[in-house]
Design a protein around this nucleic acid. Sequence first.
DNA 1: CGTGTTTTTGACTTCAGTCAATTAAAGTGG
DNA 2: CCACTTTAATTGACTGAAGTCAAAAACACG
Lengths: 248, 248
Amino acid sequence: MGQNHPALEPLLARLASRVALDADDCAAVLALPHAVRTLKPGEHFVREGEKATHCALMLSGFTIRHKIVARGARQIVAIHMTGDFVDLQNSFLAIADHNVEPLTAAKVAFVPREELRTIMFDRPNVGRALLNELLVEGSVFREWIANVGRRDARERVAHLLCEIGYRLEAAGLARTCDFELPMTQDQIADAVGLTAVHVNRTLMALDADGLTSRTKRSVKVADWQRLADAGDFSELYLHPVESPAPVK
Amino acid sequence: MGQNHPALEPLLARLASRVALDADDCAAVLALPHAVRTLKPGEHFVREGEKATHCALMLSGFTIRHKIVARGARQIVAIHMTGDFVDLQNSFLAIADHNVEPLTAAKVAFVPREELRTIMFDRPNVGRALLNELLVEGSVFREWIANVGRRDARERVAHLLCEIGYRLEAAGLARTCDFELPMTQDQIADAVGLTAVHVNRTLMALDADGLTSRTKRSVKVADWQRLADAGDFSELYLHPVESPAPVK
DNA sequence: CGTGTTTTTGACTTCAGTCAATTAAAGTGG
DNA sequence: CCACTTTAATTGACTGAAGTCAAAAACACG
């Protein structure tokens, strides 16, 4: 019961970064039953309309959450990276309202939703930490509505690049000035509500203007400040915790 | 302590509709300290960057939550009506990431955030109900991202009309076939990521096509099914509870 | 009634989409 | 390691949905 399950240590670290946890809280988190699996792109975690039974913790790789509209177009509504919880949302609601799918090969720890619900209310500290995760996720959704609704192509793409760079750095996975972006231009398009063709032109323009320099599927940010300005990016909506702003 | 505060009865009803509450739960909810106030358009509840100290329960009227982007454009990210909680989000996070403002004159009960946090974890039933509210709100955000990102003008506007009509009916405030929509075309535009001019043309087209019939600021839905089809609207994302789909 | 919104209309612009072809990269199997 | 296939990125020409600007009409209201 109380034994160590190293797979859940990233989860513990994540929760503890926002709310102080005592020894019992930590033990309870690490004792959560779980199964580790590796998924490939196309192997959905959950599909819209299904019942989600597990919540997933990303151990490596990237995951997207998306919706399909009437005409068949896809809109990505969230991107998750190592250390993120994927789908506290679907897994707490009765029926999934969107699809969840790996973007890259992804190692994931699945935790049964009932266990998570239980620990959430049995251990208020853990509950507050989970609540916080949900709230920050909500904040990101709001920012995305604004991004897609009221920014032009260049701003949208720049904003997405900033968000991913910032989150990667905040998670200790990369530096904002040089990170891997494992998304095709098609996928970027579906995240920012544009066409792949237009995303291509926009990325090339950012490059030409010296804000970024791309090589295959990684992005080097040549000038973070200018990119952030171009994307109207401010990290406030990510509700950063302890660490101050990442090195620019 | 345990005495009745009739103002919070809508809150109790709302919570009880999703999770069974026992007598103590109910008493605790009704005993929450609160202050009732009436706000007018322009009197913000909270502004981005401020610290929210209270959570608001709508007793009457409409409220919007919005963000302002670099170029000064506004994006509405949520609309709230009688019976809704406004801003569990801002009030649980340290710093507000968006603005909250009445759309019409609005009567509101303010509950201190600490009280709400406390009851959330002291009374798991209440906690689950609040969690559910948050999750459904999150689902609506996701739908809005898809609406603004991947639907054209007609679909967006029709979808918004359907959402509002459906929610009003679900809350027992109106029928989907005839409800008051207290938004100017400017505000509708800011909710769906279009221009007021284009919203005007779109609304007129819906009218001309016999899906709606407008008079000043109320909407009569002439053909709910066609409007729902035009807006790619399905109530799944609202995670309706007990009552089946509203009368069409 | 006059004044300030809000809605409506028209003419014109533009950003982003569409279609289609080309090039480049990444695998795959022999 | 090289043809062979597939997927992704790039480019160009053209289209179109939505934006812009500006003015007129219709309301709302003190």
